[in-house]
Design a protein around this nucleic acid. Structure first.
Lengths: 230, 230
DNA sequence: GCGTGTGAACTGGTTCACAGCG
DNA sequence: CGCTGTGAACCAGTTCACACGC
């Protein structure tokens, strides 16, 4: 089924997955592509295409069954089992994320280790997850079979840390550092998120007055259909 | 000059801007598109195209002058003046970012306000920037002419907060909430970043074995040229 | 009628390949 | 030569528009 799903679709599918969870908690049993589009701030055609990458599921006239859709996405995107995760760098940001542990866990990610270069810091932080000095990183990752890592070290250390993680067998990394890191080993996925850069992109977009994506829009017929349901 | 620069290019240009800063600090005077590509984990053609959206600048044979390029990008993307920024929601994550103030400032963003719904919390946090209760948000934003906001409130509050910010005149928002928020007013840019969703995307990418973007590659000649310079 | 599934048309970005210049 | 600037070719993702099913 999954002969290459485009990344933007993958991102939206994960968002849809979350939306299903929320809708389910609200007691809603069924949802249309139009409603999902509204939640994701996307288009209904887009939503339908995305879902169809995974195969057929919908029930015409009534839309998608919330629970069925959620499970369907989870099954196809391998979101069913809890994945082991670690946090590297326990400064302000890292600690905050560590404290976030609950939400990560609810989302299907168990934080099983924290790492930092400063032994001192390791001793002062009290956490529910075990903390280790950075030089044990590769070993612990390998031993515990940790699949994901969240990196919040200073920029200078980012690439080194990445290498150690990859060496230990990590398969996905979120890097909050201003340095773009790369994994030698193919197949390891990295997502770089730097706040300053995000702010700059935002700044350039807002000042350079890019034609707003909401301006280029559907034809009359389409627009009416979508608007009506608001 | 800037008749619509694609968003991915904008993102890379900001990264290049940062790279220039770093290179400058290292004392490097000149940089080639190939080297930049390596830093950004991108392709040289891409880098050249991006830079050319802004107009011509390069100095054949020797590459780009680091400082000139940096200023060139700053001028075109309006990265020259310091922008006022605020942080909404001062829980663990918000406070961590508040403490990050130094890096934001170094990057050209002055944090001039923090907001939270809990008066209690406002009183316990000690910060160098003024803190306000959330109901003053719209007013303060308008008064101070704050252009950017970083939102770290609980998901339920995200859309409401966004509306208040937009009402006050904010032009760009980074939303760390699991809820995708939308601005009614056109022209306001929103960047949604949710950690759990990022982890899910990563998970689906790594397990679903998407053909790695590094696999589909340049022709022989091209590859050789790029590799040689490593 | 309402809403999914889907080819076909289109738009946007990336990569190629090479001319031109120091 | 080495490296930029750039049309042209290519590939990817989005939007359109409509057929088909409940």
């Amino acid at each position: 089924m999954n002969t290459k799903i485009p990344t933007p679709s993958l991102t939206r599918l994960c968002l849809i997955y979350q939306a299903c969870e929320d809708l389910y908690l609200k007691g809603q049993a069924t949802v249309s592509s139009i409603e999902l589009a509204r939640i994701l701030d996307s288009s209904s055609a887009n939503v339908r295409k995305d879902i169809n990458y995974l195969g057929e599921i919908g029930n015409s006239r009534a839309g998608y069954e919330v629970m069925k859709l959620k499970n369907f996405i989870a099954a196809n995107l391998n979101l069913t089992q809890k994945r082991k995760t670690c946090i590297v760098g326990l400064g302000r940001l890292g600690s905050a994320i560590l404290a976030y542990e609950g939400r990560l866990s609810a989302g299907g990610y168990r934080v099983v280790a924290g790492f930092d270069a400063s032994i001192n810091r390791l001793e002062t932080i009290r956490a529910t997850v075990p903390l280790y000095p950075d030089y044990e990183m590769t070993d612990v990752v390998r031993q515990e079979q940790i699949e994901l890592a969240i990196v919040t070290v200073p920029g200078e250390a980012a690439q080194k840390v990445t290498d150690q993680l990859v060496e230990g067998g990590v398969k996905g990394i979120i890097n909050f550092t201003p340095v773009v890191v790369k994994s030698q080993k193919a197949g390891v996925r990295v997502r770089n998120i730097d706040m300053v850069n995000e702010l700059r992109v935002l700044t350039s977009m807002m000042t350079t007055e890019q034609s707003d994506s909401k301006m280029k829009r559907a034809t009359e017929t389409q627009r009416h259909r979508e608007e009506k349901n608001r």
